[in-house]
Design a protein around this nucleic acid. Sequence first.
DNA 1: CTAGGGTTAG
Length: 653
Amino acid sequence: MDNVDKEKHEKIKVTNVRNEPMKGVSKHLTLLRTTWLRSCSYVSFQPNIAPETSSLLNHCYNRDLPRAMQILDTMEKRGVFADAIAYSELIKCCLAHKAVREGKRVHNHIFSNGYRPKTFLINTLLNMYVKLNLLEEAQMVFDKMPERNVVSWTTMISAYSYAKLNDRAMKLLVFMIRDGVMPNMYTFSSVLRACERLCDLKQVHSGILKAGLESDVFVRSALIDAYSKLGELLEAVGVFREMVTGDSVVWNSIIAAFAQHSDGDEALALYKSMRREGFPADQSTLTSVLRACTGSSLLELGRQVHVHVLKFDQDLILNNALLDMYCKCGSLEDAKFIFSRMAVKDVISWSTMISGLAQNGFSVEALNLFDSMKVSGPRPNYITILGVLFACSHAGLVNEGWGYFRSMKNLYGIDPGREHYSCLLDLLGRAGKLDEMVKLIHEMTCEPDVVTWRTLLDACRAQRNVDLATYAAKEILKLDQQDAGAYVLLSNIYANSKRWDDVAEVRRTMSARGIRKEPGCSWIEVNNQIHAFIVGDKSHPQIDEINRKLDEYIRKLTDAGYVPDTNFMLKDLEGEQSEYSLRHHSEKLAIVFGIISFPREKTIRIWKNLKICGDCHIFAKLIAKLEQRHIVIRDPIRYHHFQDGVCSCGDYW
DNA sequence: CTAGGGTTAG
């Protein structure tokens, strides 16, 4: 019976030339399927089909739930039953109206004496409960089923994986197989969302191969997503490359995988191949492409994508990605323009705009925007508040920061997380309020982590509070014995107060534990080649020219009032000449090399493996003004856009 | 009756 069922369904599946299911024909499909099912003997072999059945069905098709329920009433009074098709349509009608009460009545009706619902009818009921988010009810129905087929199991598995109850979804798959029911492509594409561990995923993958279902496009895209979610991009690419037929969603999956893992170049390369193979870019594609532009700070490419976005003017997610791209690429005018003309804005739109303003140094505007959000926008969430606190922190607005921090719990019921505490601590630290910082750390509702203590440590260094700094550094090392920065700082603090024994002790510990500070490295792309620099680098072929130019700049800037800022420096353990190494920090070498290599380009784009150094920050700012360039430095923390002598990232150095 | 891709922070 199952085979017949499957065969018929495949016959009425409407596809286009590329074998993709066509949308907008579902109504006809329902009719077709219904007519066929009604003519099928196993369905209509129910005793005493009531004459009301056809009008019940009609009301259901017209989505007239009250009338349909009236008929159900009369049938119950007379003790007669309709057929399974009518009931399944009735259940679908309840679902369409989100009518829980009516749905439960139908539920009781088909389980009353004198009627034995078919598995497929119970499946419809399961689906109704699942879609109404009543998972307990669904589970109860499922538990009582005398027979469960693939659809029953798959419905439950997809319910749990959608609700992120991944353990339950995975367990159900095991039980299903133990029960002798074979998973199909629907089952696999659902269960793939629930794979949290690589070993589970590998097992599911091998199950898919054994069942010969790897060529199904749904399964393939789900596989790519699953590997991507676990950071296994090579596996994801492997699955992608095995594709023969071609499918735009599979393309979107692999592009999204790279865009989400900050490999913008690969994402963009894939996008080009996709277009070359004749697949048009849709909303999802463009969203990922924009994210790739954002990740690589490619403002001009982002602008070109913007033109294509206009085709999907009303797409919220796409507009949010566009908005974020303009914010992160430092073009706040464009961002504000997009934001102002978005017809629908959600929390993400508002949060993006608020954080974008804050991160680009427009703290007051950010806070004003938050005020108007409170009046006429959606309810702020965890991330919105983070942006607001960030704005306060950049503007040094201590009282306001406290106010927003307290109000998040009272007004919006959001519990402050570690990140909120870090923002507030940062704010207090910049204001030099070390005591308040310590007090806040003790009051925190979550355990302090490395970032918490590092914030305190930074503040202590700026305030030159040796004792507290020592304490903070030790707390960091308790949590992470390998934190090189903490050792170096601790050693510097001791050195500054001439505690040489302690300095030696720290050094001994470091070498005993084999800890070395990761060297800072900056790189820039010129003619498809990466040019990388480390401090005092002499290996670059043009190093003499770079150093000459660097000396020239430093002379010019010194005349204009530039004072090297050594306060931010980690003093070298080997005691190298610090002034010299500061002068030859990798960022400076890369910036100068960029200016030499691109005499005509407006924008110089540099990457760095560590957080940008404070002195280089000032240097970049001054060079941008002197040379009338736009210098973008991307470090693991954030983007720094230096334009006309202003760092748009908030001038907190 | 069951299945796929995209956005904010860190």
